[in-house]
Computed example of a mutant assay.
Amino acid sequence: MNDVWFPQPVALKFLTGPRNVASSFEALECLNQQWPEWARGRSWRAARRACRDALDGWRIARDAHKAFLKAARRAGLVPSATRSPRKSRAARTIGSPRPEMTFSGWQ
């Protein structure tokens, strides 16, 4: 079993101090040993499963990284400075109203 490295490390902030997690094995260790008990819900289980699957060769590193980052955000362990900004979903504006459709024989 080879370790699977994340595309980029995840910086976490625990009460005991900061920690950078750079691989699936480190993520599993962190999830099992340092994760707060109150934050061990659905996203925590999904992150554990994704990291184990990446180590077994069933998933790619990006999937494990994404699941781990989601669990860390839900647990409030990602410092606010490193959070990626959400893309705003601005309403699409239409420059002009829809042109009237004309059919032959209709006016």
Rank of each mutant, 00 (worst) to 15 (best):
66 K>Y: 07
41 G>D: 06
20 N>R: 14
52 R>W: 05
23 S>Y: 02
26 E>F: 03
18 P>A: 15
54 A>R: 00
17 G>C: 09
75 A>I: 01
18 P>S: 15
102 T>V: 12
5 W>H: 04
57 G>D: 12
48 R>P: 03
106 W>P: 05
8 Q>S: 15
105 G>W: 04
46 A>T: 12
64 A>E: 00
18 P>C: 15
36 P>W: 03
58 W>P: 01
77 L>H: 09
1 M>T: 05
8 Q>D: 15
74 R>P: 00
19 R>T: 06
55 L>K: 02
100 E>T: 12
89 R>E: 04
47 A>G: 08
106 W>H: 12
56 D>R: 08
26 E>R: 02
86 R>G: 07
100 E>C: 13
89 R>H: 05
94 I>Q: 13
45 R>T: 10
24 S>N: 04
92 R>E: 07
42 R>P: 03
77 L>C: 09
79 P>V: 12
96 S>D: 12
32 N>I: 09
7 P>I: 02
81 A>T: 11
32 N>D: 13
28 L>P: 02
103 F>Y: 14
46 A>F: 07
77 L>E: 03
34 Q>F: 13
105 G>A: 14
75 A>L: 02
70 K>M: 07
22 A>M: 05
46 A>K: 05
57 G>I: 10
47 A>L: 13
90 A>Q: 10
86 R>E: 15
48 R>W: 10
1 M>Q: 11
16 T>V: 08
33 Q>E: 08
20 N>S: 14
20 N>G: 14
104 S>Q: 09
98 R>I: 11
69 L>V: 07
97 P>I: 10
14 F>W: 15
49 R>Q: 11
49 R>C: 10
101 M>F: 08
101 M>L: 15
70 K>Q: 08
86 R>A: 12
85 P>K: 08
30 C>W: 00
57 G>S: 04
92 R>K: 04
17 G>Q: 06
14 F>Q: 05
84 S>N: 09
99 P>M: 03
3 D>Q: 05
101 M>D: 09
41 G>Y: 04
87 K>D: 12
61 A>N: 04
22 A>K: 06
60 I>F: 08
5 W>K: 08
81 A>Y: 14
78 V>D: 00
15 L>I: 11
107 Q>P: 02
8 Q>N: 11
62 R>M: 12
92 R>D: 04
87 K>Q: 11
8 Q>T: 10
13 K>D: 15
96 S>C: 14
66 K>T: 14
97 P>G: 11
11 A>P: 01
39 A>F: 04
75 A>T: 02
70 K>E: 05
39 A>S: 15
94 I>G: 09
9 P>H: 07
64 A>F: 00
74 R>K: 11
75 A>W: 00
3 D>F: 13
61 A>I: 01
76 G>H: 03
33 Q>M: 10
67 A>H: 01
60 I>R: 04
26 E>K: 09
66 K>A: 15
48 R>H: 13
41 G>A: 09
55 L>N: 06
94 I>A: 14
66 K>D: 11
9 P>Y: 08
2 N>P: 15
100 E>L: 15
78 V>R: 00
70 K>R: 12
44 W>K: 00
17 G>F: 02
44 W>C: 03
34 Q>T: 11
50 A>P: 02
44 W>M: 06
99 P>C: 04
78 V>Y: 01
36 P>L: 05
61 A>S: 03
76 G>K: 02
79 P>W: 11
36 P>Q: 11
